[in-house]
């Protein structure tokens, strides 16, 4: 379970996240939607314990990450939007290191590493340095890294970027089965189709605040959008297209 209470993040005078309250219970896949710069990544990074909130609290599995960071982080797997890994480690070594950060080692971890590499079709590259991996392969490696210690909660920022259609499908199925078995996933995405397909509930974040949240139907009701598609609801809440600006840009 993830609970955000009055979460605020300010950088000087700029407020990136402005009092977000959200609760994602066990067994739910929750989508955080919003335009660029809305505060999604900042929120995700505060949940992961990388950024410190200016105000408010983050609880993971009932544990406040501000006061008990190590206990909270033990339950969580974090997948960032950019797959930076150690270039001079092999895929296998990276996963072994990721497991060790959670205090795990031994034959069970080795089996888990092999399972994950097999699942993401990286077994062939297990003993090769990650500097030779493609963007998509690195993305799959960090997803494996987030799963290697069997977390109860997964926090993921733009998971589909760089993945081929087969891997994207695999990841959607993986997240679905993970929550069906009692796990919790909080995922930020720009891809509205993905949110519509896999998320149980969503929140649309705009200028650091939650503009609407709930199931698809609840969001439509909250925004008086009738039977509009999620894309239309999203554009209605976040400003949408400006035809005259398009004209101005495209004019010779």
């Amino acid at each position: 379970m993830i609970r955000l209470t009055g979460l605020v993040k300010r950088y000087g005078r700029f407020t990136a996240v402005d009092g977000i309250d959200l609760e994602v219970p066990r067994g739910e896949l929750f989508g955080l939607l919003g335009p660029n710069g809305a505060g999604k990544t900042t929120t995700i990074r505060m949940i992961a314990g990388i950024l410190r909130p200016t105000a408010g609290t983050v609880e993971v599995g009932g544990i406040d990450i501000g006061t008990h960071p190590l206990e909270a982080k033990h339950r969580m797997g974090y997948i960032p939007d950019r797959p930076f890994v150690y270039d001079k480690l092999t895929g296998g070594e990276f996963l072994r290191f990721a497991a060790a950060l959670y205090g795990q080692e031994g034959p069970a971890v080795e089996r888990r590493i092999d399972e994950l590499l097999e699942l993401f079709e990286l077994t062939r590259w297990k003993d090769e340095l990650t500097e030779s991996y493609s963007h998509g392969m690195r993305q799959k490696l960090i997803i494996s890294g987030a799963l290697v210690h069997r977390p109860a909660v997964i926090v993921v920022d733009e998971p589909m970027v760089g993945l081929d259609p087969k891997s994207a499908r695999l990841l959607k199925d993986l997240f679905r089965q993970f929550v069906d078995r009692g796990g919790t996933v909080l995922m930020s995405t720009h891809t509205l189709e993905i949110a519509e397909q896999v998320c149980d509930r969503i929140a649309i974040v705009y200028r650091g605040k939650v503009a609407a949240h709930g199931t698809m139907d609840e969001v439509r009701r909250q925004t008086a959008s009738g039977d509009m598609s999620l894309e239309e609801v999203f554009l209605k809440l976040t400003g949408g297209l400006r035809e005259h600006q398009l004209d101005a840009v495209l004019e010779a």
């Binding site: 992961a48 314990g49 990388i50 960071p69 190590l70 206990e71 982080k73 033990h74 969580m76 974090y78 960032p80 950019r82 930076f84 890994v85 150690y86 990721a98 950060l101 959670y102 205090g103 960090i142 890294g145």
Partner: peptide, 13 residues
């Protein structure tokens, strides 16, 4: 540097 996301999101002291 760029791998700090991994260290800070893990329970590494």
């Amino acid at each position: 540097g760029r791998q700090m996301w991994l260290l800070r999101s893990s329970p590494l002291k």
